[in-house]
C-alpha cells in the first residue's frame, strides 16, 4: 500500500491505495465519485476523462498513486452543487446526448478545449474532442453544444446555434397507414 494525498472536487483525501489501482477505480470505488465512467479497456473512448491540475486526462490510464499531490476535478465538481457549468447546460439545451454514457467525458474534454481555445471552429471542436467516442449522437449536437457553451462563456451571448433540424415526419409506410 502507498499513501496518497489528493484533492478531489475541492475535498482533500488521504488514503492508502495499492499501486496498481487505476485512478478511475479509486474515484468510483473508494470515493464514490460514480459520475466518472469506464467505457473501454484500451484507453480509446475518453468516457473516464477527468482533470488533473486542470488538464484533461483519461483516468483509466493513470494510476491513483500518480495523482498524489494533485488536484483532481471530476464531472461532479465542475460546478457548485445544484448548478450547471455552461458546458453542462449547453449539452442539455442542445441535445448533446442520447444515452449519456459518453457525456461526462465529453464535457470534461470540452472544458479543457475551451480553456485553450475560447472560440473554436466546428473543425477545431471535432479535433479538440477526438479522444472521446460517442456511440449514439453522431456528434452533430455535441459540436453545437460546445460552440454554444463557448459563446456563453465568452460572455457575448450571441454564440447561439440552433439544434440540428430533425425530420420528425413519419416514415412513408407509417404515414400511409394514417
Amino acid at each position: 500500500m502507498t499513501q496518497i494525498n489528493v484533492r478531489v472536487d475541492g475535498v482533500t483525501y488521504s488514503d492508502d491505495v495499492e499501486p496498481r489501482t487505476l485512478l478511475v477505480h479509486y474515484l468510483r470505488e473508494q470515493l464514490g465519485k460514480v459520475g466518472t465512467v469506464i467505457g473501454c479497456d484500451t484507453s480509446n473512448c475518453g468516457a473516464c476523462t477527468v482533470h488533473l491540475d486542470g488538464a484533461a486526462v483519461k483516468s483509466c490510464t493513470v494510476l491513483a498513486v500518480q495523482a498524489d499531490g494533485v488536484e483532481v476535478t471530476t464531472i461532479e465538481g465542475l460546478a457548485p452543487q445544484g448548478s450547471l457549468h455552461p458546458v453542462q447546460k449547453a449539452f442539455h439545451e442542445m441535445h448533446g446526448l442520447q444515452c449519456g454514457y459518453c457525456t461526462p467525458g465529453m464535457i470534461m474534454a470540452s472544458v479543457d478545449l475551451l480553456k485553450e481555445n475560447p472560440d473554436p471552429s466546428e473543425t477545431e471542436v471535432r479535433e479538440g474532442i477526438e479522444g472521446n467516442l460517442c456511440r449514439c449522437t453522431g456528434y452533430q449536437n455535441i459540436v453545437r453544444a460546445v460552440q454554444q457553451a463557448a459563446g456563453e462563456m465568452r460572455g457575448s451571448g450571441n454564440g447561439h446555434v440552433s439544434p440540428a433540424e430533425v425530420d420528425t415526419a413519419a416514415a412513408p409506410h407509417v404515414a400511409a397507414q394514417q
Binding site: T49, V62, N132
Partner: peptide, 9 residues
C-alpha cells in the same frame, strides 16, 4: 499523436 488527453501525459 493520439488526442489531447493522451498528449497531456
Amino acid at each position: 499523436v493520439a488526442d489531447r488527453q493522451v498528449r497531456a501525459r
